[in-house]
Amino acid sequence: MTALDAARLAAVISPLRRTLLGAAREAEHLPEIPDAQIEIIRALPRDTAGSPGELAGRLGLSRPTVSNLLTAMEANGLVERRPRPGDRRHVEVVATAKALDLFARFDRVSGDLVAAAADTLTDADRAALAAALPVLERLRDALAVPLRTP
């Protein structure tokens, strides 16, 4: 049995994400959007709405943090806050067309960049990456569990 070098894996994941984010921004001339704002956009797919409290719970963030993020995002045209239909005392949040377009462009160019980089690897390396994807998804989900547990 091979021991997992967890520290090495963790040391690769964060720089890999930052490198991909920077390369995607540069390739597609995307604005700098903080990771936390990207996660809010990801949590609000097209034709969905959520309350600030729901977003805070889903993302494992405090309500004041989400409120501050939404204020900045609204100022940049990335989200809209509006009264909840049937209950004007509560607000719901939706991602704007601008935010959804930026997110779609980021996802497309990120996929293209990863595919191009993977093409520089050996067949064995590409096979190993393909085999690792389900495990990495389960690892992501396992890491997210503490964030969603009160």
Rank of each mutant, 00 (worst) to 15 (best):
A3T: 02
D5R: 00
D5P: 00
A7G: 10
V12P: 03
V12H: 11
P15A: 02
R17C: 06
R17Y: 09
R18H: 10
L20S: 03
A24E: 05
A24K: 05
H29V: 14
E32S: 13
E32D: 14
Q37T: 06
I38S: 01
E39L: 14
R42W: 08
A43M: 10
P45C: 10
P45Y: 08
P45Q: 11
A49P: 03
E54D: 14
E54L: 08
A56W: 05
G57K: 09
L59Y: 12
L61K: 11
L61W: 01
L61V: 00
N68W: 08
N68P: 04
N68E: 05
N68M: 09
L69C: 07
A75N: 10
L78T: 03
E80T: 04
R82N: 12
P83L: 08
R84W: 10
G86P: 01
D87S: 01
H90C: 01
V91R: 15
E92K: 02
D101M: 05
R105F: 13
R105M: 12
D107E: 15
V109D: 05
V109I: 15
S110P: 03
S110T: 07
G111F: 04
G111T: 07
G111W: 04
L113K: 00
A115P: 07
A116C: 04
D119A: 12
T120K: 06
D123L: 11
A124M: 08
A124W: 09
L129R: 10
L133G: 08
E137K: 09
R138H: 09
L139A: 13
L139E: 11
A142Q: 07
A144P: 09
A144E: 15
L147G: 02
L147S: 02
R148I: 10
R148V: 11
